Computed example of a mutant assay.
Amino acid sequence: MLNNMAQFTQTIQQNGGGHILYFSNCEGEYVANAADYIVTGIKNGHHIVFVENDRIILKIAEKLFRRLTVQELKRIQFINNFDFYFSNGNFHPVTIFNHFFDTLDPYYEQGLSLRLWGHVEWGPQNEIERTLESFEREVDQLMPDMEVIAVCAYESDRLSYKLKKELMKCHGYLMTDHYALLIPEMELASAVEDAMDWTPEK
Rank of each mutant, 00 (worst) to 15 (best):
N3T: 15
I12R: 00
I12K: 00
Q13A: 02
Q13V: 00
Q13R: 00
Q14S: 07
Q14K: 07
N15R: 03
G16A: 04
G18H: 01
H19N: 13
H19L: 00
I20C: 12
I20H: 00
I20W: 00
Y22G: 07
F23K: 01
E27Q: 06
E27Y: 02
E27C: 05
V31P: 05
A32P: 08
A32S: 15
A35M: 03
D36F: 01
Y37D: 14
Y37P: 15
Y37R: 13
Y37G: 15
V39W: 09
I42D: 10
I42Y: 03
H46G: 07
H47W: 07
F50V: 04
V51P: 01
V51Y: 06
V51Q: 06
D54G: 08
R55F: 11
I57S: 05
I60Y: 00
A61V: 11
A61L: 12
K63E: 07
R67F: 00
Q71A: 11
Q71F: 03
Q71N: 11
Q71D: 11
E72W: 05
L73R: 15
R75V: 07
I76W: 01
Q77C: 09
F78V: 03
I79G: 07
N81S: 11
D83Y: 08
D83P: 12
F86Q: 14
S87R: 06
N88I: 14
G89F: 06
F91K: 04
H92R: 09
P93Y: 03
P93D: 05
T95W: 04
T95E: 14
I96C: 15
N98H: 14
N98F: 11
H99P: 06
F101G: 13
T103I: 14
T103V: 15
Y108N: 09
G111Q: 07
L112V: 04
L114S: 13
L116G: 15
H119W: 12
V120H: 10
W122L: 10
P124K: 08
Q125F: 15
Q125H: 14
Q125I: 08
E127L: 15
I128V: 15
T131C: 12
T131P: 10
L132I: 14
S134R: 02
S134M: 07
V139S: 02
L142N: 03
M143N: 04
D145I: 08
D145A: 11
E147N: 12
V148C: 03
C152G: 14
A153V: 00
E155S: 13
D157F: 03
R158M: 12
Y161S: 08
Y161E: 08
K162G: 09
K164Q: 10
E166Q: 08
M168Q: 06
G172W: 01
L174F: 07
M175K: 05
H178C: 03
L181R: 06
L182G: 04
L182Y: 00
P184R: 11
P184F: 07
E185M: 06
E185W: 03
E185R: 13
M186N: 13
M186F: 09
M186A: 14
E187S: 10
E187F: 10
E187C: 04
A189D: 10
A189E: 13
S190I: 02
S190Y: 12
V192T: 10
A195M: 04
T199Q: 08
K202F: 05
